[in-house]
Design a protein around this nucleic acid. Structure first.
Lengths: 300, 300
DNA sequence: TTGTTTGCATAAGCTGTATTTATGCAAAGC
DNA sequence: GCTTTGCATAAATACAGCTTATGCAAACAA
């Protein structure tokens, strides 16, 4: 019985073959696998040379499995699906001491970092990896067990949620800005100041106009000012005295307590939404991931 | 659903993992796969790091699968066995237009090469690959459909055989040697000449002493001379005038007809054995392999 | 207790496999 | 006839996947 290692030009070419057959296109397979069309072409060529059989008919804009290719594809698909399922279960169940959490850079910086020592004290031995991105990643597709998600259950029907914080928004400024420009005492007065705007390309965020409305200033239009697409940079600009920005309580309360930021209004806009730790429904979490999840929820 | 390509450190590590788990030893797995123990160790390490789980308990002189490793191993074994079986069938049935023939370098050089044009004329479209080695390869283990084998059926119980040539042996010399040393006319006279000996490390071959015995020179001891372990080199030495060597008819007859070699005796030693095209019993041959087999047998 | 054997882990080094980039070609479609 | 699309292939290359060498530790035997 011959080892597959000798039977195949490379083991990876099986994965390529499966995708190309399913998608009937080398280019599409490459896209799915994160490779170029040429690499796919070589991989298939390698298999065909090794077996001495054509696995695909090349058509215009499409490839079709030959009869021999169909037979082989069915078996490869079956074999790989067993393995994939098992690998995913292994990854989920036995994530061991490594847990990945998907979150925004703002959450990572302002919420998690100040709590990291406590995390380490409370859950020694667990290595937490925080994967930041400018969008809310598809946890299933990325193979990430946990994520931090804003909104509520209707926003995330495919995920289980445990709340960490309510969404509470108020204006914040840096001490140096206030020393220079004076301290606004009413929402109306706020409209005359330099306002810094968060505009994230992929995540909805509360706007100044929404905040003014919630404060009773109907029809007020926030003056256009500095626009930044990353909340970490927004807060940095605020601390640099560039203006006033909206502050989310769960992200800014420690900075305020430390005197690095000043809260400017008694009015808090609450949206009825919140920030949650989320995980995909119907997928097992490893023991460690469950611990991380519960720890996060317990910080509320 | 995440691609296996992203889920695994490398697809090849699955094959390594299967072998290591089955054999409970990284060293044994390396042996089976043609790798070093260290390479196996790294492959397993890669899997363990990627999954964040220990797959093996390291014991003295042995590794044992962990519980998680056992589960994964069962699925990987099942998946890979589907694929292996399919790959072997594909290889055997759809060998397509590529056929590999395992043979000695001498056979390849002196028998097949002179007939290659005729082969191409008779079987156009079939790509013949000749895999030479200094030993008779295990066709099953190597996944090679056909081989050339000396001996008879008792020597190759696991193979089917079709005869190509009888084993017939006589002395041959190069014209330049004879011009210099004179032409021996009797076997006895032959013993006084420079004799070139073939000593292959892995294949039995008729010796000068056997030839003299068959010629009736009992007790004659062939003078020790140049000893070469590759028959192609033996023939080259003969043509360079280094001495007299035994010539196998099926390999030398064309060289003799061309005047490059001279046959030196009317006595021919026949061993009752022969040279055959061989293929493993109970394994399907591709259509092309059958054609090659039949073509070879038809050259007898 | 000491010496030996065995086999996994790891550092350092390296090479050839597995790509990527660029381009050619051909089949459709307009 | 022109354009688009996608596979094949040449040339180049980088780095993953090893190999070699060595350390370490667990058994076992004397």
């Amino acid at each position: 019985m011959q080892s597959l290692r000798h039977l195949l030009p490379s083991a990876g070419s099986l994965i390529v073959f499966e995708a190309a057959g399913r998608l009937a296109s080398f280019t599409a397979a490459g896209r799915e696998l994160g490779m170029t069309q040429a690499a796919v072409s070589y991989a298939i060529r390698g298999l065909e040379d090794q077996f001495g059989a054509k696995l695909f008919q090349r058509r215009h804009r499409q490839v079709l499995l030959t009869e021999a290719g169909e037979r082989f594809h069915a078996d490869v698909t079956l074999g790989l699906s067993h393995i994939r399922k098992s690998a995913e279960e292994l990854r989920a169940r036995s994530g061991g001491m490594h847990v990945t959490l998907s979150a925004s850079t703002a959450f990572a910086s302002f919420w998690m970092m100040p709590r990291l020592q406590k995390f380490r004290d409370d859950l020694p031995g667990i290595d937490l990896r925080i994967q930041t991105a400018d969008r809310d990643l598809d946890l299933v597709a990325e193979g990430i067990p946990l994520g931090i998600r804003g909104g509520d259950a209707t926003d995330w029907p495919d995920y289980e949620l445990l709340q960490i914080a309510d969404e509470e928004v108020y204006p914040v400024a840096g001490p140096s800005y206030l020393a220079r420009a004076g301290t606004p005492t009413t929402p109306a007065e706020m409209t005359l100041h330099h306002l810094i705007h968060l505009e994230e390309p992929y995540r909805p965020a509360a706007t100044w106009n929404e905040w003014f409305q919630s404060a009773g200033l109907n029809g007020a239009v926030a003056k256009r000012g500095l626009v930044i697409n990353d909340y970490v940079l927004v807060i940095q600009a605020v601390m640099e005295g560039q203006g006033i920005a909206l502050g989310w309580r769960h992200l800014t309360d420690r900075l305020i307590a430390a005197g690095l930021l000043v809260r400017l209004s008694d009015h808090v806009m609450t949206t009825g939404k919140g920030f949650h730790v989320a995980w995909p429904k119907n997928r097992p979490l490893s023991e460690s991931a469950e611990k991380v999840r519960d720890w996060l929820a317990a910080q509320a």
